[in-house]
Amino acid sequence: MDSLVVLVLCLSCLLLLSLWRQSSGRGKLPPGPTPLPVIGNILQIGIKDISKSLTNLSKVYGPVFTLYFGLKPIVVLHGYEAVKEALIDLGEEFSGRGIFPLAERANRGFGIVFSNGKKWKEIRRFSLMTLRNFGMGKRSIEDRVQEEARCLVEELRKTKASPCDPTFILGCAPCNVICSIIFHKRFDYKDQQFLNLMEKLNENIKILSSPWIQICNNFSPIIDYFPGTHNKLLKNVAFMKSYILEKVKEHQESMDMNNPQDFIDCFLMKMEKEKHNQPSEFTIESLENTAVDLFGAGTETTSTTLRYALLLLLKHPEVTAKVQEEIERVIGRNRSPCMQDRSHMPYTDAVVHEVQRYIDLLPTSLPHAVTCDIKFRNYLIPKGTTILISLTSVLHDNKEFPNPEMFDPHHFLDEGGNFKKSKYFMPFSAGKRICVGEALAGMELFLFLTSILQNFNLKSLVDPKNLDTTPVVNGFASVPPFYQLCFIPV
């Protein structure tokens, strides 16, 4: 009986604490739906499609509103004006990374994606500088992407125009580009180590996009005490870190300090320079996690976009025909596509942009946080508050993009057929937390897609009208449904 009384008292205290925290903070924060004790607004949000729920709530509470995930307040920004004001106009104040408990377990605050403060700034600055020195957006990395595009075309030829699921092959190409940047090595598509790495990356994007992960991140005790797919994700990350550590040891034994070959060499050189400046942010643990982040951000996002792009091109054969006509006119058949071609191919450029806009790969991006107490639109948001960005509300804005739910390359073309930029184009987020590999991803999408369409016609196994382009999961990332196609050599 005594234990029951204690339990009831504990629960009562928890409920009172929950109510007090919510009521004391709500006077400062933007308005929002009334949260339930302990669980907050979790029942009012469709976990399978958070973005749709945010759109519905914005119609009631406006472009800036507050939700509670458990006891934790989260300020939501919906629509271009609110997102721009926060991420661009007040970029420094909104540059923090929001709480992501599962990532905390995986990387302990290291790396480039989930770190904060001085650690994040130094690692991000170093990573950007190193990638630029190796030619991100310049010639040397373009050579690597072109080489991988040629290998991709050869792998597709091996399908002999038979029906195939493109998931694996389209994942190999961007993964190999990242391998060449980090390890100075590309792998054969049949290499077992490479296959294991690909498998872990593919599993992780599916797990991260599941409703279960949303629950884990908002009720963090689940991570330590409950079984579930989150444990598989943590094991996959541990596998990748151990693999990278092996490569780091190989580099330490063979590195030429006067001739760095890749990202690992550059990081080890930085560690050597910083060894007298303790404590340094440049450690082996930081290198492991930064490399894992580059793999995660640079492989599955690009391969998922490529997979979605081919599905949309199957669905819209008239678009595919126009792209192939432009390829034939500008590039021809006797040389590989290059980035200089893009400025002469406005329709193809528009298609690449429209694919990214339409699929809305990361509907709410990753959570941000404010780095200080900030007054925002007459609300006071306390330091450390998590900020949720609705990228969907920007990419699918119906004023900027008429009929935003329709796939239409003319969203990025003017009346004369010239490519038209849009400030609403934010597939990689915006501001200080914009994806480090934005330029690389854009290069890969253009070169891989043009190389495929230069060499193959795409054949659907069903009537294009019957192809479903609805994402199968739409949590962290929008993942396309399973499909097969035939690559018919031109």
Rank of each mutant, 00 (worst) to 15 (best):
L17I: 13
D463L: 06
E142I: 04
Y61T: 02
K241G: 04
F226P: 06
P30H: 02
A238Q: 13
A238V: 08
H396V: 06
T305E: 03
K241V: 02
P317F: 04
Q484D: 04
S460P: 13
N378D: 14
K315S: 04
I213C: 11
V153C: 06
N204P: 00
S51C: 11
Q454D: 01
E81G: 09
L17H: 14
N258G: 11
E400P: 06
I389V: 12
K465G: 10
L380I: 15
R124W: 03
P317Q: 11
I389F: 15
V60R: 14
F401E: 02
S162Y: 09
P63Q: 11
Y379L: 06
H344A: 14
E104G: 12
A477E: 09
I205M: 11
Q278H: 11
V83L: 10
P427R: 02
P402N: 13
Y358E: 03
K465S: 11
Q44L: 10
E274G: 09
Q22L: 12
P363S: 06
K270C: 09
L19K: 14
F226V: 12
E203G: 03
K399S: 13
M257I: 14
L413Y: 05
L485T: 04
V394L: 15
Y424V: 06
L388K: 04
K158H: 08
Q356M: 14
Q278W: 09
S127E: 04
K160L: 06
Y80K: 13
T470S: 12
Q193Y: 07
Q484H: 05
Q261V: 09
E199P: 01
A477M: 10
L306S: 01
Y347S: 02
R132W: 06
T305F: 04
M426P: 01
V319P: 03
P260C: 09
N202V: 01
S429F: 05
F219A: 09
G296C: 04
A103D: 15
Y61G: 02
S3T: 14
N107T: 15
S336P: 12
S23A: 12
P346S: 07
E328W: 13
M339N: 09
C216P: 09
I374F: 11
K399W: 08
M269L: 14
T301H: 02
L391Y: 11
V60Y: 09
L14P: 15
V113C: 07
Q324I: 04
V76G: 01
Q44D: 11
F419L: 09
C338S: 14
G437S: 05
C164A: 03
S451F: 11
T302F: 02
C435V: 00
D463K: 06
V490K: 15
I387Y: 02
D293N: 10
I123G: 15
K235T: 08
S95G: 14
H411N: 11
L54G: 04
K121T: 11
L447T: 06
D397F: 05
P30T: 02
L9Q: 14
K206P: 01
N289A: 15
G437H: 03
P346N: 06
S478L: 07
Y483I: 02
K459I: 06
V248H: 05
Q324P: 01
E326N: 01
N403F: 07
V177F: 00
K59S: 12
G40Y: 03
Y61F: 07
K72T: 10
M406T: 14
P404L: 04
K52S: 12
V436H: 05
S209Q: 14
R139W: 09
P227V: 10
E354T: 00
K241R: 09
I327R: 00
D408H: 03
I452Q: 00
F267T: 04
K375F: 06
M240T: 03
I434Y: 14
C175N: 02
Y68V: 04
E203F: 03
C372G: 12
P382S: 05
D89E: 09
G137Q: 09
E148V: 01
I223H: 09
P363W: 00
K399F: 08
R21Y: 14
T385Q: 06
L54E: 03
I434P: 08
Y61E: 03
Q214V: 11
S365F: 05
D373F: 01
P166C: 02
S53Y: 11
I244Y: 04
L361F: 09
S53C: 10
A291F: 15
D397H: 09
I374E: 02
A297H: 00
F448N: 00
K119Q: 15
D293S: 05
G40K: 04
K383F: 04
P317R: 07
F126D: 06
E285A: 07
F407N: 00
D165A: 00
K423I: 07
S343P: 15
C486H: 07
T55P: 14
V472T: 08
A149N: 00
P367K: 06
C372D: 13
L54H: 05
I50M: 13
G96V: 07
E122T: 11
S365I: 12
E93G: 12
K235I: 03
Q356F: 08
F94Y: 10
C338I: 09
I141Y: 05
T159S: 06
E325V: 10
K118R: 13
T55C: 12
K423T: 08
N56F: 07
T159A: 04
R125P: 06
F482M: 12
I213N: 15
L313I: 02
I182L: 15
S303N: 04
T167C: 05
F476N: 05
H78Y: 11
L391I: 09
T392H: 14
D165S: 01
I327V: 09
L361Y: 03
S303R: 15
L43V: 11
L362T: 14
Q278A: 11
I50L: 11
F448T: 01
Y225C: 10
V6A: 13
I182N: 00
L388G: 03
G96K: 06
F448L: 02
L131R: 04
E199R: 11
I488P: 02
G27I: 11
A309T: 08
W120D: 07
C175R: 04
A86P: 02
I207C: 00
L413R: 02
G40M: 01
S140K: 06
G79F: 01
L197E: 00
F100L: 14
R144C: 11
V153R: 00
K119M: 10
I215H: 07
K273C: 08
Y358M: 11
N455R: 06
Y379K: 05
G40I: 03
S24L: 12
L380F: 13
I112N: 07
N236V: 00
P101H: 11
G117C: 09
G437L: 04
D349R: 15
K48V: 07
K273H: 09
Q192L: 08
L77I: 14
L201N: 04
N116F: 04
M426Y: 10
D360S: 13
V237A: 09
N176T: 01
V479A: 12
N196R: 14
K465E: 15
S24I: 15
P337Q: 00
I123Q: 15
N258W: 05
E85Y: 08
S53Q: 13
N289Y: 13
D188T: 05
Q324A: 06
R124I: 03
R21P: 13
C486F: 03
N56E: 10
P166W: 01
I389L: 14
F69E: 04
A350G: 04
R377T: 04
D293L: 09
I213K: 13
G62H: 02
F69Y: 12
Q193L: 09
L9S: 05
Q356P: 02
E438D: 12
P402E: 15
P409L: 02
F487I: 00
P317I: 03
Y358C: 06
E203A: 06
N133S: 11
V8S: 13
G135P: 10
P260Q: 08
S220A: 11
F69H: 08
V83H: 05
S254R: 13
L413T: 03
S429D: 05
S393G: 14
I50C: 14
S220P: 12
E81A: 11
S303Q: 06
K158G: 08
G96I: 05
I39R: 05
S303V: 04
H184Y: 05
A173D: 00
H344R: 14
L440I: 09
L362H: 02
T371L: 08
C338P: 01
G62P: 03
R132I: 04
F65Y: 14
K465W: 06
M129V: 12
S53R: 13
T299E: 01
K459D: 05
P317L: 02
V237Q: 08
I374L: 15
L208C: 09
K28G: 12
C172D: 00
L461E: 15
N418P: 04
D463G: 05
D191Q: 03
D293F: 04
L11V: 14
L445G: 05
L268N: 04
V6C: 12
L128G: 13
Y358T: 05
V323S: 07
F295T: 02
G416M: 13
A350R: 00
P337G: 06
C151T: 06
L71H: 14
S336I: 11
F126M: 13
F376I: 11
N474M: 10
K232N: 06
Q214I: 11
I205W: 13
E400R: 08
G27V: 11
D373M: 02
G437Q: 03
Q214K: 13
P404E: 08
H368E: 01
Y225I: 12
L314N: 02
L17E: 13
S336Y: 15
K383N: 05
L197N: 00
K270G: 07
G27Y: 14
A238R: 13
C175A: 15
S393F: 00
